[in-house]
Every structure is written in structure tokens, then in C-alpha cells.
């Protein structure tokens, strides 16, 4: 198991953001994380990568209990993530942004190696022509790719993707889906939060459904699409799931 989340609970004041969330993630899989807005998906990411300390429970990453460890500790150990709301380092160039990932993440590269990694990753994400532009000058779709590029450049073992498809047009989605597959084929385990159902149903090996901070279902895409609870809580329309599976 690359990641084990055991009984994680997180409260903000009176708000129960996560309640007793438990799951295991084997290496090499793509795990989909879905649920309505406000279900606690991003909070779960923030607990896993050390931005928040859980009130209860443990996070075990690569066999080590990392609960309450700082985000940079986890990054060095092999975790990387993207942000739902992009956070480019605006006044740095696109290449420099990616080099930050390569230098300080799990890759721990020196500057010249980092530049090589950056150029390769920018190529993979189709950002090579923009390498010398300031990150602040990119459009939203490019900024999402930049988030991805920074995360991949750190050569992580586990990658958390927070809505990398949101706000993209269909052709952009198609190419991003391809990229995610390519990343997985490099042996990187992925957890992805996504609202674009067709994409997540197609990509995921397994899916977790979060509702009001609780895990309400877990299984293969087929199982989730046919799960009564999920349909009630989230998908709403029983036929919807079927259509989604076909990618309509």
C-alpha cells in the first residue's frame, strides 16, 4: 500500500468536514474521488499532504505515519499535488515554476538537472513554447497544465489531482486525460478529484464517493455507477450513471 488513510476526522469550528474517513490505496492505481461540492474532497487532500492536521486518525504514506508532518516533508518523501484554484508563481517563468517542483520535491534535483526535467515535462504537457513566458501571463487552461507540470517534475510516487479538468473545453479535456494516463504509465499512483464524470469513470481503477465528509461508497466505476446510495446522494438520475459509463 502506498497510502493508508485511517479514521481521519477534521473539524472547522462547528463544521464537521471529514468524519472517520478510511481507505487504502495500492501502488500504480488511479483512484477517483467524487462527491457533491462541499463534501470534503479538497479537505481530504489537505489532510493527506499535511496542510491540515487531522483532529483524529492517521495518514500512512509509504509505510510511515506522516500525520501532522509538514507539506514539504511529504513533498520530499514523494507526494505532489495540484490545486483546484491554480497557484502559479506569477513573476517566475513557466520553466522556473516547473524547476521549483523538480528542485524541492521528491526529485531533489540540482538546478541544471531540474532545467532538463522541466523541459521534458513541459514538452509532455505541450507547454514548451511557453517555457520562457511569465507564469502570470498564461490562460487558465495553460495554468492548469502548469500545475500538472510542476507536480510531475517533482517525480512523485503519489500524485493528488484536484479538478484538473474543470473549466477546460472538450478537446482540452481529451488531451489532459491522455496526459493523466501517460503519467500513470510512468508508475505514478494518482488520486483525482473530478466533476467531469465521463473522464473519471474512464480513468479510475477505483472510485471513492464522499458525501458530507463521510465515505458513502467505494468500488470499481461500474459498482459506483450502480450503487443505490450514490445515485440517491449524488448522481440523482439512475440512467445518468449508465450514460456516463458510455461516455456520452
Amino acid at each position: 500500500m502506498i497510502l493508508q488513510v485511517q479514521g481521519v476526522t477534521k473539524r472547522f469550528g462547528g463544521l464537521q468536514a471529514l468524519t472517520q474517513v478510511t481507505f487504502d490505496l495500492p501502488e500504480g492505481q488511479i483512484l477517483g474521488l467524487i462527491g457533491p461540492n462541499g463534501a470534503g474532497k479538497t479537505t481530504l487532500f489537505n489532510v493527506i499532504d499535511g496542510v491540515y492536521k487531522p483532529d483524529e486518525g492517521r495518514v500512512i504514506f509509504l509505510g510511515e505515519d506522516v500525520t501532522g508532518k509538514k507539506p514539504y516533508y511529504l513533498a520530499k518523501k514523494g507526494l505532489a499535488r495540484t490545486h483546484q484554484i491554480v497557484r502559479p508563481l506569477n513573476e517566475l517563468t513557466v520553466r522556473e515554476n516547473v524547476m521549483v517542483g523538480a528542485c524541492f520535491g521528491h526529485a531533489s534535483a540540482n538546478l541544471s538537472t531540474a532545467a532538463k526535467i522541466a523541459d521534458e515535462v513541459l514538452d509532455l504537457l505541450g507547454l514548451a513554447p511557453k517555457a520562457n513566458a511569465l507564469a502570470g501571463s498564461l490562460n487558465v487552461a495553460q495554468k492548469k497544465r502548469l500545475e500538472m507540470a510542476r507536480a510531475i517534475a517533482s517525480q512523485p510516487k503519489l500524485l493528488l489531482l484536484d479538478e484538473v479538468l474543470a473549466g477546460l473545453n472538450p478537446s482540452e479535456i481529451a488531451s489532459m486525460v491522455k496526459t493523466v494516463r501517460a503519467v500513470r504509465d510512468r508508475g505514478i499512483t494518482i488520486i483525482m478529484i473530478e466533476h467531469v464524470m465521463s473522464a473519471i469513470m474512464n480513468l479510475s481503477d477505483r472510485i471513492l464517493v464522499l458525501d458530507f465528509g463521510k465515505l458513502i461508497a467505494e468500488g470499481t466505476p461500474e459498482e459506483i455507477a450502480n450503487n443505490e446510495k450514490v445515485i440517491q446522494a449524488y448522481l440523482g438520475d439512475p440512467k445518468l450513471a449508465e450514460r456516463l459509463m458510455k461516455g456520452e
Binding site: D49, P71, Y72, A75, H83, L89, V100, G101, R150, S154
Partner: peptide, 8 residues
Amino acid sequence: DAAEVMGV
């Protein structure tokens, strides 16, 4: 915060 998440 982003820098910290990237491992700085």
C-alpha cells in the same frame, strides 16, 4: 503556501 506544498 504553494512553495511549501512543492517541498520548499
